[in-house]
Design a protein around this nucleic acid. Structure first.
Lengths: 159, 159
DNA sequence: AACTAGGTTCGGTAATTACCGAACTAAACG
DNA sequence: CGTTTAGTTCGGTAATTACCGAACCTAGTT
């Protein structure tokens, strides 16, 4: 195995572990997405490429590919006269949308909490309310920040 | 049950689901942290409070409390002449550190990817490299942003 | 029509996780 | 010293998840 191949394997593993740890992916889902990101072949990787490079069964690869498709982490393309599907990670900006969704979720939660606090907190102990409001401000800014990044990414993607 | 109690239960559930979904907590861990956040009693909640309001076993509550302590999501206090532990969520700013850690992780990953790309990408297809660099910029800014929020939170917390 | 390529679906197993009750410990109280 | 309080530890079970092989399907190809 070449040095490059070894490094690529290390990177796939790194991404795999990251997706397991922070995004609650199954090991195989993590490795598949890792593969697609690291390889980042202009054409994309096929089902069989993944089966052989990851040494997993067809059924597991199929299941996990469909899962990743459903949650919008990957896409596939086909070419006329070729039945194979060529898988790629979704665009950077699309993947960022997931993050955005979590922030939007949190925004709603914060609102509910503030509502609740307003009903229940005595005048004395506003500290917790004040903290939540700092956090609310953070969430709102964060949403803007994410949207800005998404725009920047889209700009480069559409070149 | 009063309206307030019902709403509180709803909020605990909301937090519970959120922590399960985005932070990969077990159901009970999520509910415990939810309880502590929503109740946010000045004194804190005791082991028995949690056992009874959540209807879980002592052993499960014990295990999950220790887990949450270990990962820094909660803390406990004791009062002289009282053997009970009073549990509270860790400070907002401390909990935010977790987020920060993930960003720091990502920063390293991005560096490794850029290294790899520089070795392997032909001059023609710099698009992917350029995208990663946009993302790198995002991560760096994000780290700063998080640090700023943490500072703001600390300011309010230390009042 | 039979075959092949490119997957998908189904049924099952192995591993992991979540939770429980019962027994235990350690500190404080009487 | 015995008892109570406040939890912890241990062993086991139930539920869930991850993965597999085998059978199947569907669109071309021969």
């Amino acid at each position: 195995m070449t040095d490059i191949a070894k490094e690529r394997e290390g990177l796939v593993e790194m991404f795999g572990v990251h997706f397991e740890k922070y995004w609650n992916f199954s090991p195989l889902s993590g490795r598949i997405l890792g593969c697609l990101i690291v390889w980042n072949d202009a054409k994309g990787l096929t089902f069989d490429d993944l089966v052989s490079t990851l040494g997993a069964s067809k059924s597991s690869v199929s299941t996990n590919l469909n899962l990743l498709l459903k949650i919008g982490k990957i896409e596939y393309y086909t070419f006329p006269g070729d039945r194979k599907k060529y898988y790629k990670p979704s665009s950077f900006s699309d993947r960022m949308q997931n993050h955005l969704q979590m922030v939007i979720d949190e925004k709603k939660m914060v609102e509910r909490m503030i509502d609740y606090k307003n009903k229940t907190v005595g005048d004395g102990e506003c500290a917790s309310l004040e903290l939540i409001k700092v956090y609310q401000e953070h969430v709102i800014e964060f949403e803007k920040f994410l949207n800005k990044t998404i725009q920047k990414l889209e700009k480069v993607e559409n070149k």
